[in-house]
Every structure is written in C-alpha cells, then in structure tokens.
Amino acid sequence: MHQTTLWQKADVVARRCVPMTMTVFFLLFSMVPMHLPGVPSMAPMYTLMAVYFWSVYRADSFGYGAAFAIGVLEDLLIGTPLGSTALTLLLCQWVVFNQQKFFSNRPFPEVWLAFSVVAIGAGLLRWVCTGLIGSGSFPPIGDAVGAIILTIVTYPIIGWLMARAQMKLMVPT
C-alpha cells in the first residue's frame, strides 16, 4: 500500500500555497520604490491581476478567504480605508466564479478582455470607496482611469509570470 510521507504532504501543501505566496509577493513588489517619474501616482493594481488570474485558472487553491486576506493585508499596508480593497477583490472573484462556464478553455485575448471589464469596475469601486469611506473627498478621476489602463496593459506580463509559475510549480487540475 502506498503511504504518503511527511515530505510529500509538505510538498502538496507548498504547491497549493503558490497562488497566495505569489499574490503576496506582487503586493510587496508593488510597494518597492521604482524611482520612475510620474508612475507613483498611477501604480497598477497588481493584487487585482493576481486574484483574477488565480480565480480563473486555480479556483481550487484560491478561494474567497484568500482574496479577503489579501485585500485586508493590502488595506493595512498601503493605507487605503480598511475593507475597501477587500471588498473590491471579493467582488472581482465573485464575478469570475459566477462566470466559470465562460472562462473554461477560453483563449487568452478573451480572458484579457474580460479582465479589462473587471479592472474598470474594480478601479471605479476603489475610487468611490476612497472618497466615501476615507477623507470625504475624491482623488482625481483621471488618475484612477490611468491606474485602470496601466493595470489592463500590465496584465499580460503578470499573467504570463503566474502562468509559468503554475506550470512549473503546481499540480495540473
């Protein structure tokens, strides 16, 4: 009879943690000062990209709890009103989970197009949350639109990195 050793169990757990670990890494990476002129006021939403990707391709290893934890962590670290990012990420994931039939075996351009719609919704929701829950005044809408465009444009790069990690490190579903 085949018996799983402790190492094998640890290996399985570690592989299941890849989505969460990568998302936290992207969150920390987004906080590293890049010293690029103009970029700090319009940084892309890396965690949104990660939550979307893992919800589409690896829903088995990245549930609502993971998206919520990432959102709260981001709110605490970035200084955005507590709960605003968590709400955005949860709603993004809810949309993806409800459209699982649409996402199954779709070519990348269609998944990217769907991401664009999600990113627009998420960006606007965060913008509204920042104004309503935070200081009472809203950031410039132009910057929010800039952040949304930057997020959509950056998605293929981040998506490719996560796809590579999924193929190399995770067990196929």
Partner: peptide, 15 residues
C-alpha cells in the same frame, strides 16, 4: 532610507 512607496491613486505614503 525609503523602502516602501505605497503610493497610487488611492493613497500616498512612504515607509
């Protein structure tokens, strides 16, 4: 030393 720039459209602070 500045090690974190949490800035963006939604908050502007450094660590």
């Amino acid at each position: 030393r500045v090690v974190g720039d949490t800035g963006g459209t939604f908050a502007q602070s450094i660590l």
